[in-house]
Design a protein around this nucleic acid. Structure first.
Lengths: 351, 351
DNA sequence: TTGAAAGCGCTAACAT
DNA sequence: ATGTTAGCGCTTTCAA
C-alpha cells in the first residue's frame, strides 16, 4: 500500500509522439528541434507546444546513430586530483556547454593496455573528439587515432614527432624567464638553484630552458651543481635541498620547479635555520591556492588554466567541424610577486 | 601534395563487418561482445580475432538505442571549483568505471530555467541516472524526475520533503561534536564562538547542532552572542570576527564553521594582535589541503570525500538495476588534531 | 513547406 | 549453439 502508482514504466516520449500530437510528420519535428530546413512559424509553434506538453527530449542515442555524430567530447586524464584539474575542467566544461557538446570524462592509468585502443572507455564510438591530458595515451594509441582521422587535442603536452596533433599549453619558458629575471634584477641573486621537474615532462624542459636563458641574459654562469631533483614534489625537493645544505652548497635563491617544489625547499631551508627570503629567496611556479597563504607568501608564476581548457575545446571543435585548428596554442603566464623572493608584499590574505 | 592519404573517410567498423569476417551472424558477435548467451569457445575465438583485426568497438549510440540503456551516469554540479570537487569526482569516476558506466558531467547555475527540465543537458535522454550535487536542481525538477522513475542520488544534501531520494553525506554533526568536545575537554575552552555556514545549507545546520549538543553535554550555556555569520567564506568570517573584537566580545575559541571560515577568523584575530592558539583557539571543518600548511596548522575535521563519491555511484547503480538503495548514506568523519586548537602537533608539513 | 520511407548499428526475441 | 529479423528513435534524401 505504500507503493501507490509505483508502476509507471511509461516509456519516454518519442519524436513520433510529438509528431502525432502536433499533427505533423516526424521529419517536421526534427526540423524544428534542430532548426534545419524551413518550417512555417505556425507549424513551429504547434510543434513546440507539443514538445513542451509531453516533455519531449530527443534520445541522444538515436540521434547520434542517425546523424553519425555524438555531440559529445571526451576528456582523458591520468589523475583527476592534480591541483589545477579543477580550473581546467571548469574551462572545458563551460566551453563545451557553450558550443553544445556534452562532456564525457575518464581517467586512465597510462601504460596499461597501452595498445588496446579498442577497449578504451572513450573513443570514436562514443565521442566526436578527445581532449588528451599529458601521459594518458601512448604514442601508438595517439597514432592510431590520428590515423583514422579522429579529432584530438593534447593538453599540457606537445605532439609526438610525426603526428601533428594540436596542443594547448602555457608559456613555461617565458614565465620562468621572467621569474628568474626578477630574482637577478630586483634581488641581485647570483647563485640560483633549480629543482628540475620530472624527467620527460614538457613543463620541466621549458622551465629549465627559461632558467638557463635568464642566466645567460645576465651573463651568469650555468652551474650544474645548482641543478637538482625536485620532481614537482615536496618531499623530493625537500630531500634535495637538505642534501645541498648538508654538503655546504652555496646559493642565494631556489626556484622550486613548481610550487610544491618550492614548499619542499622552504621546509628544508627552515629546518636548517635559514630564513626565507632573508637568507635564501624561494620561488615556485603554478600559483596553487596555497601559494597565497604560505608564510612567506610564495612568489610564483600564474597560468590561465581555465582559459587553457576553453582553448582546448575550441581547437577540438574546430577539428570536429572540419576546420583547421591552430597547431599550437600557447597561453601567456604572469609573474605573481609576493614575499618569498624578498619583495615586501602587501597584506593579501583576503585579497 | 602535403596531404597524401588524407581522404580516409573510411567509416568505422560495424558489428556486421565483424560478423562477416568471422563468418557468423551479428547476433553471435553481439553475444560474445556482451557475454550474453552461449557461444562455443571456438566461435568466440574467431569473433574475438575478427574484432581485434578491424579494431571494432560497438557504437554507443546504436547500443543504447537498441538496449534502452545508456550505460552512462550523469553528474550535475553547480560549481566545479569547490575545493573538495577533485576528490569526490575521483571517487565517482573510479567507481563508475569499475561498474562499467561512463560519466557525463555538467555544471548548472541553479535557479535558472528552474522548471525547464526538458532542456537540461543531462537527463533520461542521455543517462541512466543522475548524481545531483546540492543546489543544482530545484525541488520541482527533482520531483519531476522522481516522478518519471528516473534514478537519482543526492550528494551533500538530503532529500526534499515528499520525494524520498537517496542521499549521501558526511557526518557533520558527529564531527562537530567531537571537535567542540576536544576544545572543551582538552583545552578547557568555555566560550566558544561559532561561525555559522550559509543559510539553508545542510552542513551548516548539522554542524550547528553538533556544536550545541557538545555545549549541552558539558553544561555550557548556549550564548547567541557567540553565534555569527561565517558563510563558509573567509571574508565574511573575517568581518564577523573583526566586529566581535571591535565590540569587545569575549571568547576563548572560534569554530569557523569550515576551514575557510577558520582562516578568516585567524586573520582577524591576528590583525587585532591576538595569538592563535595562545589567546584564542581556532578550529575548522573539511581539512582542505591548505589546513595542513597554515601556521598554526589547523585543527579540523576530515571527511572521506572520495568514498562519498564512490558510495553515491553505488547507490545510483543500485537504483538503475532496480535494487533498493539505502535511503541515506552517512559517512563518518574524523577529527584531525593539529596546532590551532592549542595542541602541539609534530612537524607534519611533509607527512 | 511538408511527408514518406530508408537506413544508422545494435539487441533481443524467436526459430532452428 | 547459432541465425533471422523486427525494431529502438532519430535524420535525411527524395517526392510531392
Amino acid at each position: 500500500m505504500l507503493r501507490v502508482r509505483m508502476n509507471k514504466i511509461q516509456k519516454r516520449a518519442t519524436i513520433e509522439d510529438v509528431a502525432k500530437l502536433a499533427g505533423v510528420s516526424t521529419a517536421t519535428v526534427s526540423r524544428v528541434v534542430n532548426q534545419t530546413g524551413q518550417v512555417t512559424e505556425k507549424t513551429t509553434q504547434r510543434v513546440r507546444a507539443a514538445i513542451a506538453e509531453i516533455n519531449y527530449l530527443p534520445s541522444a542515442g538515436a540521434k547520434s546513430l542517425a546523424s553519425r555524430k555524438t555531440n559529445t567530447i571526451g576528456l582523458l586524464s591520468s589523475d583527476i586530483s592534480v591541483p589545477f584539474f579543477g580550473p581546467i575542467l571548469r574551462g572545458i566544461e563551460s566551453e563545451a556547454t557553450r558550443v553544445g557538446y556534452g562532456l564525457l570524462i575518464s581517467c586512465t592509468q597510462s601504460s596499461q593496455n597501452s595498445s588496446k585502443v579498442y577497449d578504451r572507455y572513450l573513443g570514436p564510438h562514443n565521442t566526436d573528439g578527445l581532449l588528451v591530458f599529458a601521459g594518458t595515451l601512448s604514442d601508438e594509441e595517439l597514432g592510431y587515432l590520428v590515423n583514422i582521422g579522429f579529432p584530438l587535442v593534447l593538453l599540457h603536452q606537445s605532439s609526438p614527432a610525426g603526428l601533428s596533433i594540436p596542443s594547448v599549453t602555457v608559456e613555461n619558458k617565458d614565465g620562468t624567464y621572467s621569474l628568474v629575471n626578477h630574482l637577478i634584477e630586483v634581488h641581485g641573486c647570483q647563485r640560483i638553484a633549480f629543482l628540475r621537474g620530472p624527467e620527460n615532462h614538457q613543463d620541466s624542459y621549458w622551465r629549465e630552458l627559461g632558467y638557463r636563458e635568464s642566466l645567460k641574459a645576465h651573463s651568469l654562469p650555468y652551474d650544474p651543481h645548482l641543478i637538482g631533483v625536485g620532481a614537482f614534489n615536496q618531499l623530493e625537493a625537500y630531500q634535495t635541498v637538505k642534501d645541498w645544505l648538508a654538503n655546504g652548497l652555496e646559493f642565494d635563491a631556489v626556484f622550486g620547479g613548481d610550487d610544491e617544489g618550492a614548499i619542499g625547499a622552504i621546509t628544508a631551508l627552515r629546518e636548517a635555520g635559514q630564513r626565507v627570503p632573508e637568507d635564501v629567496a624561494v620561488v615556485g611556479f603554478d600559483d596553487i591556492h596555497l601559494a597565497h597563504y604560505l608564510i612567506p607568501a610564495l612568489t610564483t608564476v600564474r597560468a590561465p588554466i581555465e582559459q587553457a581548457g576553453q582553448q582546448a575545446v575550441k581547437q577540438l571543435v574546430r577539428q570536429i567541424e572540419k576546420e583547421i585548428p591552430d597547431p599550437i596554442t600557447m597561453l601567456p603566464t604572469e609573474l605573481v610577486i609576493r614575499s618569498s623572493c624578498g619583495c615586501s608584499s602587501e597584506q593579501e590574505v583576503l585579497a
